[in-house]
Design a protein around this nucleic acid. Structure first.
Lengths: 336, 336
DNA sequence: CTGAAAGCGCTTACAG
DNA sequence: CTGAAAGCGCTTACAG
């Protein structure tokens, strides 16, 4: 079919070793034979076969990204950052929608191990123990977004969720909210835990505080709607909601609107993540914004650096989230 | 490092050929040696090396998905469908964010060809001519979402965009709209063309029709906002907007809200795609819904069928879109 | 600076 | 039903 390295060697009148040398610009080579080889390559439109190459070098120029739900804008934005960075370095991206619920699935880890994937970016939050063992055993380099328990990683990229959440809750208090509910995400996920923790730490000493002000969601819009209903039943006098992510905050907005409750006049709402949708809701949503696209780029960059160059060891990269104040928390009569 | 097929053969006391036979359940094998091999596999925790296998069979159990923007919920939903179906068949998914604008990039096609990717699902709308030639030359099986000009595909999955758009515009007329604007997507993309065409065909004979009722967007929220502003400047008496997709319709909602224009009372708005966000906007958005997740599954299923079994040839699969009527078009006093 | 040869870990005719 | 051997298309010591 297409030309192989032998064809090139034959046409150029050199050995395959020499062709390989110019292909990889590695080892000594005279400019003369280099020229001959390059011409032959052009003539034959030769393209090296990555699979053959991979078999001997055990690298594939491929990385895998694990997300819990590509449908959540936070993760699709992240994926875009990862993909574009990877592509610019000549890498290819395998997308793994790592959703541990139901369905007869093949283990992504198994599929990936057998394919010599060079590295993994893990952004799925929770990792089941069986897969954790497999990854550890496989020695595949891993960059994690937020810490993974019991897991050694080459690098973790880390946004201070505690600090971000604290800013959010304090902001709600500043705006005059007295009774603030929290919709928290799955507690196996460290970011969800940190956000909850910050909420509790800020609110604990507040006069109207009660544990029943916290209720669970699963980071989807739908769960935000349900959680908000629950919160309203428990506390008809609620005047603020801090949602564990933007999708649930959007759900809260929806639920409140359905009941005719005005945001922010009656209840102020704040999200977390900073997905672009928060700019188009009505009212626009106050949120703790993460530099999501940049995180994706950075994760890919770090992983690729590590893969190509073992000297790299920036173990922990910490980024800041920032509070973006919009209509959904601007209570009338309160001055900032 | 990990066990190879030779290790298994040695331990089982058979040849590698026999091991290969049980691995692939192909060719004759006695139950006796089969048992021995299987035990050896278990003992050694042997996992076949896909890369080595790929080198000889020229297949990798990998497919690639091309989307123009993974950040658009339509495409992330599609991607989820593709990924889950692929995974369930033991395939792995390469994500290609095929955005032809700027940046120094590597050609996704080149990267993929060299890796023996088994097939492509093309959902990026437009394909640049150079890449089209490469794909054609590479003979990689291709499933397209909507037709690609000058391209032979194994299968095209096709939603009747013309019909869907026609339903949308007629619905707006039924609701009493007289002056309906259209925000159209990039005209290199066939779906955007079909939707525009339907709009024109329905509106052309309408008394208030004018070509200036059509204005362009690029399928993003931001462009929907801008286009709506343009439309309002040209036609202050506008009473309906049909947007070429949901993201632009969400932008329209936003722009109208900013100007204090009531939807649907003053202007009715209808989108296209049926992304889940249309259920949570305020007002909820009327849209022409495509079975997006299912399209993804179907595309992956068809491609994999084709890859594994050359008899498959369902060239064209046509699906229907359905009008989902919600608040954004329910003008007061109009009965359905 | 260059080439012959072994090897990466499989599959696949071909004999038997 | 089974095994020896060639081959997939590269890279990499090793000699020279």
């Amino acid at each position: 079919m297409s030309a192989t390295i032998r064809d090139v060697a034959k046409l150029a009148g050199v050995s395959v070793a020499s062709v390989s040398r110019v292909l990889n610009s590695k080892g000594y080579i005279s400019t003369e034979t280099k020229d001959k080889v390059e011409e032959a390559i052009k003539l034959l439109k030769y393209e090296p076969n990555q699979v053959a190459r991979s078999l001997t070098v055990k690298k594939t120029k491929t990385i895998a990204l694990f997300v819990p739900d590509i449908t959540n804008p936070f993760f699709s934005t992240l994926a875009k950052g990862v993909e574009e960075q990877a592509n610019s370095k000549g890498f290819t991206l395998i997308l793994c929608n790592y959703d541990e619920s139901g369905g007869e699935k093949n283990s992504h880890i198994d599929l990936i191990k057998q394919k010599y994937v060079d590295g993994i970016i893990f952004a799925a939050g929770k990792l089941n123990p069986r897969d954790a063992v497999k990854i550890k055993h496989s020695k595949i380099p891993l960059v994690a977004l937020d810490r993974i328990p019991d897991m050694e990683t080459e690098c973790v990229i880390f946004v201070d969720n505690y600090k971000g959440a604290k800013m959010a809750v304090e902001h709600l208090l500043d705006m005059g909210c007295k009774k603030i509910g929290h919709i928290y995400g799955p507690q196996e996920i460290s970011t969800a835990r940190d956000r909850l923790l910050a909420y509790e730490d800020v609110m604990r000493d507040s006069p109207l505080y009660s544990p029943s002000l916290m209720t669970s969601g699963d980071f989807t819009i739908e769960s935000g709607i349900e959680a908000t209903k629950t919160l309203l039943e428990r506390h008809p006098d609620l005047d603020g909601i801090f949602a564990g992510n933007d999708m649930m905050a959007i759900g809260a907005l929806k639920a409140l609107h359905r009941r005719g409750i005005k945001v922010p006049e009656q209840i102020a709402v704040c999200g977390f993540d900073g997905i672009s949708l928060t700019e188009v809701t009505n009212p626009e949503l106050t949120t703790v914004a993460q530099p999501t696209y940049e995180i994706g780029k950075l994760a890919a960059e770090s992983l690729i650096k590590f893969i190509s160059d073992l000297y790299f060891n920036e173990k922990i990269i910490k980024l800041d989230a920032s509070l973006v104040i919009r209509e959904s928390t601007k209570k009338i009569g309160v001055k900032l």
